[in-house]
């Protein structure tokens, strides 16, 4: 009972503090925003722990953060091996291949109005389909190891990226194109100096969407067959063994890698498209 009351009190106190912070001048600064968000995150963890202890929930159903934390610390080698197998070999390889392929295909399509008119509606439609369903087929073709996971990721990220990149290549101003024409710029010059830079905000938008899809694809593909290492494998076997603390540890790693990948792309984006209005401070 005291756990429940304690957690609730903590929640109320943190919320009151957040309300004051948000209204204060500190809340308008960068540090203030991070503090408020972090406080909210900590509150969620405390509430989780309080509820688990207060209602005496069995660790077989839902372990609290205080159980999961030590589990992460004690099984770092396994988590690292899973991370390498799923994220680095599966997701990132597929992500890189898919992004390069979409980039190249978009530039190729862009030269032909006929292909644009033909492929764009199809690309738009396909990027809304549950492509993840191809996972069992690709696992059958490429085997159980990371190659099949990378293949799933390639197919999943290709179409959203293609659609974004083609839209980006068309996003130049009339004025800018006319300027290039008065300079009598060649196709390559126009592409390199005007259209590719102009397409970059769109491409990075696509990359951000694709980053999440990449991890989903790599993990789902492991449900259809995998070697005895990998995050999807770990989750499905540990659920079967009721080792839920290990499942949550893997989820924490997945969440961290997803956020890190997203953050990395956002960082590169701010360097590449520093000129874009959304990046100005």
């Amino acid at each position: 009972m005291s756990w429940l009351i304690g957690a609730t009190l903590f929640w109320l106190a943190a919320w009151a503090l957040n309300v004051r912070l948000a209204a204060s001048r500190f809340g308008a600064t960068r540090a203030g925003r991070i503090t408020v968000a972090a406080l909210f995150g900590i509150t969620l963890l405390v509430l989780w722990e309080g509820l688990v202890r207060g209602f005496a929930v069995s660790p077989i159903i839902l372990p609290g953060p205080s159980v999961i934390g030590p589990k992460i610390a004690s099984s770092l080698p396994i988590l690292w091996a899973d991370f390498v197998q799923t994220v680095i070999k599966g997701a990132l390889t597929g992500f890189a291949i898919g992004a390069l392929a979409a980039f190249a295909a978009a530039i190729a399509i862009d030269r032909s109005p006929f292909l644009q008119k033909g492929l764009l509606p199809i690309g738009n439609f396909v990027s809304a389909l549950p492509i993840v369903g191809l996972a069992p087929v690709l696992v059958m073709w490429f085997g159980f190891d990371w190659q099949s996971k990378a293949a799933v990721v390639v197919v999943m990220v290709f179409f959203p990226l293609l659609v974004n990149m083609v839209a980006g290549l068309q996003a130049t101003d009339r004025l800018h194109r006319d300027l290039m024409a008065t300079y009598s710029a060649t196709y390559t010059q126009r592409l390199l100096k005007l259209r590719l830079p102009a397409a970059m905000p769109f491409f990075f938008n696509g990359l951000k969407i694709a980053a999440t899809l990449a991890l989903i694809g790599a993990i789902v593909a492991e449900f259809f067959g995998s070697p005895i290492v990998g995050m999807g494998f770990r989750i499905s076997t540990e659920v079967g063994k009721l080792g839920l603390d290990m499942v949550w540890a893997t989820i924490a790693v997945a969440a961290l890698s997803g956020s890190a990948l997203y953050g990395l792309i956002a960082l590169i984006e701010s360097r590449v498209t520093f000129w874009h209005p959304s990046q100005r401070k």
Partner: peptide, 16 residues
């Protein structure tokens, strides 16, 4: 946290 929630691969949470 809503943004972070979308970077978490949901499939990891599904069996849970």
């Amino acid at each position: 946290w809503a943004i972070i929630s979308q970077t978490i691969p949901i499939v990891a949470l599904a069996p849970m």
